[in-house]
Design a protein around this nucleic acid. Structure first.
Lengths: 197, 197, 197, 197
DNA sequence: CATGAATGAGACTTCATTCAT
DNA sequence: AATGAATGAAGTCTCATTCAT
């Protein structure tokens, strides 16, 4: 029993079930009862580990943005040439899409403005991530390897274009398939041409 | 009184109130009771003109995408050089932001996945708009004035970067102010450099 | 125009539409809007000729019980032997079923207890009709051609058995078909054997 | 308090309250709020035990038809002579009327055609019960102790006459009192004379 | 006579959350 | 730590009826 719980703690089970449901039916379309059922735990158990439904959602957001932060840290640590770096950031969403499709869906589609507290926290997480990218760009500019421009605009633009294309690529029609194949390279090219000196 | 009503039909009053509320509190954060109160009409009156809450939301979406469609039509009619065209599309969101801030907020923040019907219709509207842009780009490619690339990826990327930057520019902090000032030009430059031959 | 209205007055159109709808969807399942739509008139027009939805329903009930009253009057006027008379009353519902299926459905299935006023009036109409039958039976007893029994019990029993069998015969399955064929004779026989001296 | 609750579970309290209200005001005249109030529980508690208002109604119907099924089973088990059996079935409604007046009211007066699902289920329950009676009659015919006739017609007729008389006997006027006194015997006699060889 | 836009009470139902066990 | 029965506010929507035109 302890071995099982070690790889599959109760909070983890809850979050995993919640991610699937939020991705599929959205925040308001997912009830605590549904999460409890999908996770195979009681409703009370969820409230034992999370203070509210918002808190479950936030846990997911934090997890997801932590993944992005780590990815950017790694990029920076590798000391790649700016060109490579810009292109990799542009491709980042696609890579995460491959590994964490449900989480990406949540970020792409659900901005629950109806919860001021959630909304503020989500914005803070986005801002933090955009900040990492902006700093990357500023370093490139100082090194003369990225053209002079407004780093924050460029950072938000970079992330916005990536998000829009991955969001469209989530479907299962012909264009979605095409976007999943050509999207990463096209985006990388677009970003680099837009930012090179 | 009759003069006021003449320019201010009941459905218009309802939509105007709904836009404000949806933009401020989101779809689920806005109740029919609240819309009725803000519009100064009875709940029943809303249902006399719209078949459901979804229908009110859709009316707003259609109105907003109609504005975009018209804007793109006008661009094309002017026969501008591709460079100008690409830059104007990149600036489009900002121009609409100035005139219809609440509507832009709705488009930037609310994709109600919890309503399959709404979700599908919103995607269709987005797709249609992206299609207009993609066609614009393809014409530019045929004329050799835009570099060869995957038009649909570029179209979604163009719109995605514009949306992300305008969304961030909605706030009232220092960065938001900066983005509203420099965003349009920065975006236009980024887009053109990314797409020129 | 007057010629058309002569055979198809507005109140008649309304009642005819209402009968169909009440029979198919019940009293609460039928809205005034639906009646207006089916009759091809405005809602206001209905209120011009009937004081309320209840009033429309009552008009149908009165019409239907009038048919029954007339049928019993005719029976009595023919001075048939009691055997024949009892059997004909037993068959009465079936004959009306053939000609006025929707009205019979309403009487068989809808006793809107939720409307005290309607309920009382419907009971009064039923009572009046049962009274006609009871009197028929009492006359037969006085003539020694029907066995002595409690006429009102027998009258309600006679009508109740006929209603139950016709109600079941309204369906379209095998048993319903059988009941429509054999029901009238079976009922007539059952009634006569139960009541003959 | 625990002793009281032991014999009076929450679902039982809800059903008991609902029976009284449905019998007095009908299905549509009874709101969930009213049931909750009468049962002394919250509205949510009702939905915790029943999936819908229809479900509460169905629970009552099932309970009532179960009583009838048991009564007929017992009749058959006693191996009474057919005459006795037919007369007892004819009296059955009256006996149940004495013990469960409200439930009988519901069955006598409410056939909610407006709810297709409820309607179908009620018909199924009625059909099942009529089937028990029809089988009883067929056994009598095979034994030569009931005249040859269409068993299903006779079964529906038997139940229909009993229902009609008991329905009229529910009132508190002079005739209702008379029917409660003489009805059982009169019905029993009528049924036996109609069905004996 | 006729219209149909407007009313607003009230219906059923859902759901996040609590708490006694 | 865990359960799940119970709560009740709040949600969307329907509908008989009215009344200005």
């Amino acid at each position: 029993m302890s071995a099982v719980n070690a790889v599959d703690s109760l909070p983890e089970r809850i979050v995993r079930a919640a991610v699937k449901l939020f991705a599929g039916k959205g925040f308001h379309g997912t009830s605590m009862r549904a999460i409890a059922g999908a996770a195979g735990v009681s409703i009370g158990a969820i409230y034992h580990h999370f203070s509210s439904k918002d808190d479950v959602f936030l846990a997911i957001l934090r997890q997801e943005y932590e993944r992005r932060r780590v990815a950017v840290e790694e990029l920076r640590a590798q000391g790649l040439p700016p060109r490579e770096m810009v292109q990799r950031v542009a491709r980042l969403h696609f890579e995460l899409l491959g590994r964490h499709q449900d989480s990406v869906k949540i970020l792409s589609h659900t901005l629950p403005r109806e919860h001021p507290r959630l909304h503020r926290q989500l914005q803070a997480l986005e801002e933090e991530f955009a900040g990492h990218v902006a700093r990357l760009l500023e370093e490139g500019m100082r090194a003369g390897e990225i053209r002079e421009c407004h780093a924050w605009t460029a950072a938000h633009a970079l992330l916005g274009m990536a998000r829009a294309v991955t969001a469209r690529a989530l479907g299962d029609d012909k264009l979605a398939t095409e976007l999943r194949q050509r999207g990463p390279e096209e985006l990388a090219e677009l970003a680099w041409r837009g930012l090179r000196p």
